[in-house]
Write a protein that binds this DNA or RNA. Structure first.
Length: 585
RNA sequence: GCGCCUGUAGCUCAGCGGAUAGAGCAGCACCCUUCUAAGGUGAAGGCCGGGGGUUCAAUUCCCUCCAGGCGCGCCA
């Protein structure tokens, strides 16, 4: 990071010195092809016209100037060059190659900071509220929720790692016609029984039942509506049933969340009678953001902002989802003074959030710009779209159980000496599950395929865990566990670097940037794919070069240290993705 | 009709203003008397949906068309 800034600064200075031009922003990137170096700038290309010279000549001039600046870093009183090569090439790039000294020094940083490497205080302890999961109490959570939960949990970890204080929020859809449907079926067919299976599944089965029965009993539709009206008029019997069934669902979810390693600080329920929401709507009307039409409904007029109008209050005066969201956002801001508030919700709500955010902005709430919709694509099955109503409902629990079963078989097949198969296969399965969701761009829809997610090869969670386990195996064999060895620059100063070793170093130092990017852009897959790349580099090194049997002691120390640091970064990175490593597998 | 997202190797996906477009899976050829072969090495595989445009430079930005998914005032 610091190198990044230093380099940008130096480039600006060089341009100024040679051409007397102030460049506002210099483009500095990591070249895709590492043969070109670790950093590259194209300033010469963009300056060519202005300067009226050949870009390559400009690049050469800048490279010369930058070289003569002698950028260096200090360690133990001695100064070392940061770059071993600064050169101008072909079209007009200036490429920078980091020195082995700098790379080794950074490795020492990783070693010293261990699992804190990559963390920062950029968040300054400011509050970030992350709302995610948002399930409905008529059924267990399906795989789509799993994706939501995993994304949310990862963002929480990332934001905390970046120095924010995170408030984890759930917003439960605990009332509505869908819930009335499960209730109706329980009334008719439940025989007053208590759950004999996981309680949220027990409730969900009644929901499925509704659609099965509907064909022969079209009258159920009206009966469900009636049940909802009774709930709204606070009919005691209805309320009791509702409470009982919802409690079952919460009990079931507790297990699901525990399995998934997902937690919350605050819970909000849709059934909460939020007077504040209606006050917000009144306020919106007063401020001219919304209008009450002939029917009495309140509509936010958003068409001139390129958005569809939005109903904020029904004509019968009852609230809609948006009514409560307006209040919730304000209430949360008043309570937590958040720096950001994230809504982790399916991409289909994209327009909805634009509307809500716009209304708040038009109402004059400056914090409206701190609201972010973290959007993600749907999760479907290969056979087609999932539908809980058709009964081919794929819930997260069953998927997880199936994955555990597959992984257990895999582990038994090629087991070394794993003491606890149950525990290990569970962790590996969760890694497979989470990683499968987190490695793809959130915008992409996912076709959830068992056989691919459970794979132990390629870009999968288990592959990463395996890579980690390999690092630990080496350390253990060499007697380097528990970090009982010291490691400093002096010890490895003389070690020359093989390409595969350098490849790892050139990846390790990018970890902080990656974490920052993943956190700021809300994109877990950036981190996931980085870890995969790092694992591949490590495995190439592992396969080609002896570590413990290295002849030279400085070289051996370096390789062990490298192994140790790869392990630390993998462990940290996986932890941020909500994946717990195992030492052996 | 208006709007959003997607279209990259046979398949699943990265890359989203730069230099020869990258992985994995599948298939092919190799590497276990050596630190976990759940691994590694090599070769093969691409009009980056089509067509325009902007730019020194476009898979990347703009326009348009095609294909698929999704959303559009009283659902959540």
């Amino acid at each position: 990071m610091e190198v990044f800034e230093l380099l940008k600064d130096s480039i600006k200075k060089a341009v100024k010195k040679v051409y007397k031009i102030d460049v506002k922003e210099v483009v500095l990137e990591h070249p895709e092809n590492e043969d070109f170096g670790d950093f590259a700038t194209s300033v010469a290309l963009s300056l060519a016209k202005q300067v009226g010279a050949n870009p390559l000549e400009i690049a050469e001039g800048l490279a010369g100037e930058l070289t003569s600046m002698g950028m260096e870093f200090k360690s133990d009183g001695s100064a070392y060059p940061i770059f071993e090569k600064i050169e101008a090439v072909k079209p007009g790039f200036v490429n920078f190659t980091l020195s082995t000294e700098w790379l080794k020094q950074e490795l020492i940083h990783v070693y010293e900071k261990k699992e804190e490497y990559g963390s920062s205080d950029i968040g300054g302890g400011k509050n970030v509220l992350i709302e995610y999961s948002q399930p409905n109490t008529n059924k267990p959570q399906h795989v789509g929720h799993a994706r939501n939960n995993f994304i949310g949990a990862t963002l929480i970890n990332l934001m905390e790692f970046l120095g924010y204080k995170v408030i984890r929020a759930n917003y439960v859809g605990d009332i509505g016609i869908h819930i009335a449907k499960s209730m109706l079926m329980y009334q008719k067919y439940g025989e007053g029984k208590n759950p004999d299976i996981k309680p949220d599944h027990f409730v969900g089965d009644f929901y499925i039942r509704y659609f099965q029965e509907l064909e022969d009993h079209p009258e159920y539709e009206e009966e469900a509506a009636e049940l909802l009206r009774k709930w709204e008029s606070k009919d005691q019997e209805t309320r009791e049933l509702w409470q009982k069934m919802n409690d079952w669902v919460y009990e079931g979810w507790k297990q699901t969340y525990e399995d998934q390693g997902v937690e919350f600080d605050i819970w909000t329920y849709e059934s909460d009678d939020i007077e504040g929401g209606k006050e917000m709507v009144d306020e919106a009307v007063k401020k001219g953001v919304a209008e009450r039409d002939e029917s009495g409904a309140v509509i936010a007029k958003l068409e001139k902002y390129g958005l569809p109008d939005k109903v904020l209050l029904r004509s019968d005066g009852t609230s809609v989802y948006a009514t409560k969201d307006l209040f919730l956002a304000k209430d949360n801001f008043d309570k937590y003074n958040f720096e950001k508030r994230l809504y982790v919700v399916d991409f289909r709500q994209g327009d909805y959030f634009k509307q809500v955010f716009k209304v708040l902005e038009l109402m004059g709430y400056e914090w409206a710009k701190k609201l972010y919709h973290v959007s993600y694509g749907t999760v479907t099955l290969p056979e087609g779209a999932m539908s809980s109503r058709k009964g081919n409902f794929v819930n997260a629990d069953d998927v997880f159980e199936s994955i555990i079963k597959v992984e257990k078989g895999e582990i038994k097949n090629s087991l070394k000496e794993v003491s606890d198969i149950e525990e290990t296969s569970r962790k590996v399965a969760l890694a497979a599950f989470k990683y499968g969701m987190l490695k793809v761009d959130p915008k992409q829809d996912i076709v959830f395929e068992y056989d691919k997610v459970t794979k132990f090869e390629g870009n999968t969670g288990p592959y990463l865990m395996y890579s980690y386990a390999r690092t630990q195996s080496i350390l253990e064999k060499g007697g380097f566990v528990e970090s009982k060895f010291t490691f400093n620059l002096e010890m490895i100063e003389g070690a020359s670097l093989e390409k595969v070793e350098k490849d790892i170093l050139r990846s390790l130092y990018k970890f902080p940037e990656i974490v920052f990017e993943a956190g700021e852009k809300f994109m877990s897959h950036v981190l996931a794919n980085y870890l995969y790349d790092l694992s591949q580099r490590f495995n190439a090194f592992y396969g080609q070069i002896p570590i413990l049997s290295a002849e030279d002691s400085g070289v051996k120390t370096f390789r062990v240290g490298l192994t140790n640091c790869v392990g630390d970064v993998l462990k940290t990175g996986l932890r941020l993705l909500g994946i717990e490593v195992v030492e052996k597998m």
